[in-house]
Amino acid sequence: MVTLAEAAQPAGVSASTVSQVLSGKRSVSTTTRQRVEQSIREVGYHPNAGARALAGKRSNIIALMTPLRTDMYVPVMMEIAIAVTPTARTHGYDVLLLTGEEGPDAVRRVTGSGLADAMILMDVELEDERLPLLRDTDQPSVLIGLHADTTGLTCVDVDWSATGALCVEHLAGLGHRDIAVIGEAPAVHERHTGFAERTRDGLRSRARASGVRVLHRPCEGGYDARALTLARVFDERPGATGFVVRNESAVEPLLAPLRQQGRAAPEDVSVVAICPDQVAVQASVRPTSVAVPAQKMGRHAVEHLMAKLDARGSDEVVLPAPELTVRARSGPAPAAS
């Protein structure tokens, strides 16, 4: 960790001058201030909140890192964040929300400054650049998501592989032999985001075991993009009768293009969505769905973090089994004509 004296050296000033620039308690010339600010940026100095407090005193702050990306379904991310905040308050902690896409830089800033006692990371990728930094620090942390290597980590997530498999199992059990998957935006897969990759792997694995064909197509947001994706699916697989929607924003908008294609649910096609229950029940045509328990994940992450802060917790991976709710939009595959 960079010290105050090390931050002062490139600027040619004393450590006390750097402190004065940071605190603003004393007047410092504009030229000196600019030199100090440049030096701070160059050496990566972060004021240590813990050092300004009494020895051994915690900040009682949890950092929640949740990049709000335009290619992801933000309501689910915020639902998790909203669950984290009141749960943390019941333990006497406030939440510092980091919403930028700074990645490792944000982790360095928080762990190096003593600004927070612990950290929760969301939007976890299979090869996440933030993880080596967390492993190199003693600061407690919990991931809402699953890294490719969970050694030395505490992770709270849905068993996405089992979720994908459950969708195929349901449709295959109804006689559907040709299934199309409307996936997340292409950028989500390009980043190898854990939940999207694991769901796709689970879908494909169970499809192979069940003798079912699966076509997976990523889908951008917007009505036109969804309609185009659906049209391409039917061009490639005109016999598709089962649909898995792994894109929360596409659950409701997918139904209108299906009707325009002359395919009614569940008479011609069956639809299974992977989404929060409220998304499924608020749709004009309620699909069968596998729930995304966003609030429960947020609460569990805080509870595991509190256990680690109190030296009660150990590294573990918590993956509740998925639950499928059958509704009217999935039914037997239509008889071949």
Score class of each variant (00 low, 15 high):
His91Leu: 14
Gly103Lys: 10
Ala55Ile: 00
Asp71Met: 03
Thr150Val: 13
Arg200Gln: 07
Gln278His: 13
Ser161Asn: 11
Arg135Val: 08
Ala118Glu: 06
Ala116Leu: 02
His304Ala: 11
Leu174Asp: 11
Ser270Gly: 12
Thr3Leu: 03
Ala294His: 04
Leu126His: 08
Ala116Val: 01
Glu236Leu: 13
Gly112Phe: 01
Ser337Asp: 14
Arg35Leu: 10
Arg198Asp: 00
Ser249His: 09
Leu255Pro: 08
Arg204Met: 11
Asn48Phe: 02
Ser113Ala: 13
Leu203Pro: 01
Gly298Lys: 03
Asp159Arg: 02
Gln261Cys: 14
Val317Gln: 07
Ala187Lys: 06
Thr70Gln: 10
Ala55Val: 09
Gly12Val: 09
Leu215Asn: 03
Gly239His: 11
Val158Glu: 08
Arg299Ser: 13
Pro322Phe: 00
Lys57Gln: 15
Arg299Val: 15
Ile144Gly: 02
Thr85Cys: 07
Met72Trp: 02
Glu236Gln: 11
Val107Cys: 03
Leu22Thr: 04
Arg200Phe: 06
Met78Leu: 13
Ser16Tyr: 05
Asp201Tyr: 04
Asp201Leu: 12
Thr154Phe: 05
Ala225Arg: 07
Asp235Thr: 15
Thr199Tyr: 09
Leu54Thr: 14
Glu220Pro: 08
Thr229Pro: 02
Cys167Gln: 12
Arg204Asp: 10
Gly221Phe: 10
Cys275Lys: 07
Asp159Cys: 10
Val84Asp: 08
Ala335Leu: 08
Asp117Tyr: 13
Arg200Glu: 08
Ala55Phe: 06
Thr199Arg: 09
Pro266Ala: 13
Asp157Arg: 04
Asp277Met: 07
Met119Ser: 01
Ala273Gln: 00
Val2Gln: 09
Asp94Ser: 12
Gly114Asp: 04
Arg35Pro: 09
Ile120Phe: 04
Ala165His: 01
Ser29Arg: 10
Thr325Glu: 14
Val269Glu: 08
Val244Leu: 01
Asn48Gly: 09
Ala118Ile: 11
Arg213Met: 14
Thr87Arg: 14
Gly24Thr: 14
Val272Pro: 02
Ala11Thr: 00
Ser27Trp: 11
Arg232Gly: 15
Gly114Gln: 11
Leu230His: 11
Pro132Glu: 06
Glu252Lys: 02
Asn48Asp: 15
Gly92Ser: 04
Val142Cys: 05
His304Ile: 05
Ser314His: 12
Glu37Gln: 13
Met297Cys: 03
Leu153Gly: 01
His147Asp: 15
Leu126Phe: 01
